[in-house]
Design a protein around this nucleic acid. Structure first.
Lengths: 259, 259
DNA sequence: CGAAATTTTGATCACGTTCAACTTCAGTGG
DNA sequence: CCACTGAAGTTGAACGTGATCAAAATTTCG
């Protein structure tokens, strides 16, 4: 395939998913064109809309342009555990689309814009351009690591530590796709959502937020968060950033390999 | 590459990793040869050996033939959270090898046999045979889902539910690679390991095990577990199996896609 | 403006941790 | 063969944390 020069549309500079991919893989113009051609539908959904339903087949990838969603499981006793916040640059359908039926539901927490593409189409592209198959693996690995980190949060960190850790991680994820400042970000979701994500009760989450405020570590106003003492927060949370390695290029990867 | 007919070695029928791959992708003889040729070293390690260390670069894939390991994080306060048991058929280095430095440590819980391969070599193979890149994505997605399931366990299930869920899931994973019976399996790890995996204290885990025994749901003797009432266990645990979908073949995936 | 959702505060209590002691078992050397 | 050792499993008592329930205060939205 010739790498013909392509004029970018005005939205390209702000495509969160492309921004995210670029942190670990090189994309030339032809790659971007191929990606764009996969988009079957640009979906605009409203808050509370179910996007994936636990127990049903789902065979799409949804590249989130804007808005927030939650991947969760509902138990018989009415309790809900959110296993991940989905934000701009994330892909709905990882990992649900890889299973016979999805094990988790996804619901929009805000209005959203999503580029939808059938999984089968994406896989087709993967056979033609293996780089995208590797990118898929990288994204899934990222997802697994975030999930594992939250497992540590919930299993072994105290509520205040886990809240701090969550806030730091969220800022980092948003910053990576250009949706957060150095020490602040908007997270337009209710405390009920946060408590379900952190495995806490709403009142207790609220108390921990108050405590972080009282101790001068953060300020919160109408779902806008600001870090007042990043260092102290990181210490409290045992926080360390995890950066994806870049995908080895074909030439590097094949250098010492037999054909 | 010609798909020359190849004689299988005697170990192939029992290669846990190949067994696992086959559940979601077709492998021909040439694929298996290619896989085998990647193996740089057949590593035999002893119990307690560190395989991956949190904070250090790791760039290998380790296909587990035999034995058990744990992926975990150690906190400053001395607490440990195990984020996943690694068993035959699993790959050490997912997802640690995809990051600048690993975020989690891996330690052998028993003596193990591992086929080691540099990640770069595997990626080289992925460019030549995209099927393997997709398989990598599938494996990472599987990992992410298991992790999410455990997140639900720890966040919202009661200790007895989460223990039941863990036992059912473990049996299923072992059975998938031919290392478990219909209703029984060996899990040669201490209760301390189980408690660190489930986010419980050792005494409480022990009590929950006792309760499952007393209620006639399981029997345990010298680390051999047996389900006496699978139905009741599943009900208690809210258990449902999750099966990976098969990877679409190139022809299916490209049918409706432009080249 | 009224209704609903969300955030905040308070009081009580159950659950699971912690700490400690004791038992059981496997392995080792006298 | 048994005493000794250390690791693992089991049991008990006391405490503290975070859930639960309830209600008030505040904000958002129809």
């Amino acid at each position: 395939l010739p790498a013909t020069p392509i004029r970018l549309t005005r939205r390209d500079g702000d495509n969160a998913f492309i921004n995210r991919l670029r942190t670990f893989v090189d994309l030339d113009a032809a790659d971007r064109v191929a990606l764009r051609s996969l988009v079957e539908e640009e979906l605009a959904v409203t808050r509370r809309r179910d996007l994936v339903v636990d127990g049903y087949e789902y065979r799409k990838l949804g590249f989130v342009r804007d808005g927030f969603a939650a991947r969760y499981k509902l138990l018989r006793n009415g309790k809900r555990q959110i296993v991940g916040l989905i934000m701009p640059g994330d892909v709905i359908g990882i990992p649900g689309s890889f299973f016979d039926v999805a094990s988790f539901s996804v619901v929009a927490l805000t209005d959203m814009n999503i580029d939808l593409c059938p999984l089968e189409q994406f896989v087709g592209l993967c056979y033609r351009r293996p780089k995208f198959a590797l990118a898929l693996g990288w994204l899934a690995a990222d997802e697994a690591t975030q999930c594992a980190e939250r497992l540590v949060d919930i299993g072994r960190r105290t509520p205040i530590e886990r809240l701090s850790h969550f806030l730091l991680e969220t800022q980092a994820r948003l910053a990576a796709v250009g949706r957060a400042g150095e020490r602040s970000f908007d997270l337009p979701v209710s405390q009920e959502v946060l408590s379900d994500a952190l495995g806490l009760s709403v009142p207790h989450l609220n108390r921990m937020l108050s405590k972080l405020r009282k101790d001068g570590l953060i300020s919160v106003a109408s779902r806008h968060f600001e870090f007042l003492d990043v260092r102290a927060l990181q210490l409290l949370a045992h926080y360390r950033t995890a950066r994806l390695a870049r995908i080895p290029s074909p030439v590097a990867a094949n250098r010492r390999a037999g054909s």
